[in-house]
Write a protein that binds this DNA or RNA. Structure first.
Lengths: 372, 372
DNA sequence: ACTAGCGTTTTGATCGTTCCAATTGAACGT
DNA sequence: ACGTTCAATTGGAACGATCAAAACGCTAGT
């Protein structure tokens, strides 16, 4: 009554184990009549090949590893959660499993991955939260470990040769700023993180671009306040920017935006319209009806896993997976989508459609890749 | 230059593979001098046994599976995130891996688990979000699949024989309510979810207990408003409860509390003190300085994984892992901890220590189990 | 001296699959 | 009739470990 194996099935059918194996892995080698007989037996018995034995023989376990970060502030957490969920889904749909591991730092992460490769024969891994000067891509590349990164190789977008996907934050804030201007606001401020390379700078840039371009402002810093992340800090910054005459705000994070939201609501002179746009579209934003910029994390996850697995299984040359704005050799910048809420109820709904960043490659299409 | 194996190492040392194997798995069988020689070779070469080969032979892969739910509202998400993170950490510390999978419903989950057992030889799995009448424990039990549940077997706490851990929500709201009463509030209201068995009822009960007991209220329903979860709903409920004369609130969720928080802040007559306590201690609560009840999810994760793995490896009889209020045969109710924020600044800090629920088995001790 | 016992080490078989080379049998051309 | 070709099928070996039992060398007991 125990689980059937290749041998037990073969014996029962009076064929050799290899024939059964071929029915599954190379059906064209088996005579149609035999194939059918075997196939029926497989279904009847509920036989499923042992992934473990396959892994031992093939030295590939159809597994992807991913590091799990501590639930920092829950803001990043929510995004990572969505990402991880989609990674698992996509991997599953391609017959792969996802294992998690923790690591104290990037160094430890590489060590852990080496171990997973050696001991568990994992096929590939996913990196997240890449930084400028990140040591991981180079090291993994040198070690011959297949990987994809959620996060661009900051500063080396054009030269890095590995697979990566990232969200075009700049395009996001650009779209947000344009949207506010289109709605008639003329003094759009920005609440940003402290100066430094990476995500924060990228998002700020989009706002600065448009403010210069469309409003003809030479020194946008007038309408810029930087601060550590946080709701309270967001309120403070918003108050300050209102003092400086701003009439609308784009924020680096939903925390900022939540704080700002609060300040604006307390001002009856603002007429109940809340021209504030956050970033990341966290659950809180959804809950309080705050407009925000949604990262197409699902798209990123799908893309990365699809490519990684395809590469691992040798399914190259598959063009069914759409790519978005290819940059460098194998990098992908995905356009975020403006999620309008508080503003949506206001008079100019026609503008809603324009809110999508150009290229129009939102998560929509990517979510269901045609290639299974 | 490729990875060393038992055989390659043995040949190099002039001993048999089994001797090397014994050095790792049954050192007492090997003569000390030999053992040392082998051990050195192992370290020098960086040999690590192939988990895949071990899994094939032992029919155990040192792996725990866990279902990943869609990031519903991010409230539950944040809690699950913490749980998952700790599960991975604890599993790792005991030499186990964690694989994730998705499932459309409980039925599919069982199927997926069957598959993981058959194909991947996983050792055990963790269930979360158990409900009243949950079919999973029985089915898994019948299928002989080892599992632990984060969430009690609602309605069968005393009869269910499987391993489970849950948070004593009732004790949490009880402590919260007592705290408010101790601080002088006499009309403590409650915002709860729609009627129904499970978590919501459990949390409500704690409040009702104390209100009856300490305030001598016969019909607490006067100060109770039920609603679907949400910040906006929380605001509405709070407004209503203020109207009914409540002077403090305990809430089933941080969403409710956030909304209520907002309403209270808008009332200058309340003197800036915000006698509101939420549940789950989400990132938002932390960010806006809202008091909340922290679930000891880390403790639950540690406990469950520890027990599961110990059982799988036959390390029974290990009493180093403390258990909290054992109920039924293998169930554990963990006490949540009151996290005071907005109130903490107020005059009566001495009360802070009393805020811990009785039994005083917070996450503190459980977080670092003494056993391995 | 022969055997029993013990500590140490080795050998053979096995887990369930895939890779590789070999085998079979029928159809074909010469 | 015979070698050649090709499709279909087969058995041996290997992946890297563990289990079970056998073999080894030594000492001790009778």
């Amino acid at each position: 009554m125990s689980r059937p194996t290749l041998v037990s099935l073969a014996r029962e059918l009076g064929v050799s184990r290899q024939t059964v194996s071929n029915v599954l892995n190379a059906p064209h080698l088996v005579r149609p009549s035999t194939r059918q007989r075997v196939q029926e037996a497989i279904e009847r018995s509920g036989y499923r090949p042992s992934a473990v034995a396959q892994a031992l023989r093939r030295k590939k376990s159809s597994t992807i590893a991913m590091r799990m970060y501590p639930t920092s502030d829950g803001i990043n957490g929510a995004v990572m959660d969505r990402f991880l969920h989609r990674v698992v889904e996509q991997a599953e749909s391609m017959g792969h499993r996802v294992v998690l591991f923790t690591a104290a730092d990037d160094r430890a992460e590489i060590g852990a991955l080496r171990d997973l490769i050696d001991r568990d024969s994992i096929d590939a891994c996913l990196l997240t939260s890449t930084t400028a000067g990140d040591p991981r891509p180079a090291e993994l590349g040198a070690a011959g470990i297949a990987f994809g990164a959620f996060g661009r190789p900051w500063g080396e977008e054009d030269t890095a040769s590995h697979l990566w996907a990232d969200v075009d934050g700049r395009a996001g804030t650009r779209a947000a700023t344009e949207h506010l201007i289109d709605r008639g606001y003329r003094r759009v401020g920005f609440i940003g993180w402290p100066d430094g390379p990476g995500v924060g700078q990228d998002r700020l840039q989009g706002w600065a671009d448009i403010v210069r371009e469309r409003l003809g402002v030479d020194d946008p810093d007038e309408w810029l306040v930087r601060s550590d992340d946080g709701i309270v800090q967001g309120s403070a910054a918003a108050t300050e920017l209102l003092r400086r005459g701003c009439d609308a705000l784009v924020c680096t994070s939903d925390s900022f935006a939540t704080g700002a939201f609060d300040v604006f609501r307390g001002r009856p002179d603002l007429d109940g319209v809340l021209p504030i746009i956050g970033f990341d579209d966290t659950p809180v934003a959804r809950a309080i009806g705050l407009s925000s910029i949604t990262q197409p994390v699902e798209a990123a996850a799908t893309l990365l896993v699809h490519r990684l697995v395809a590469r691992a299984t040798g399914d190259d040359g598959d063009t069914s997976m759409p790519t978005c704005r290819p940059v460098g050799s194998d990098g992908h910048l995905l356009a975020p989508v403006l999620q309008l809420r508080a503003l949506a109820a206001a008079p100019a709904p026609a503008l809603l459609s324009r809110a999508r960043p150009d290229g129009d490659v939102g998560s929509g299409r990517l979510l269901e890749p045609t290639g299974g």
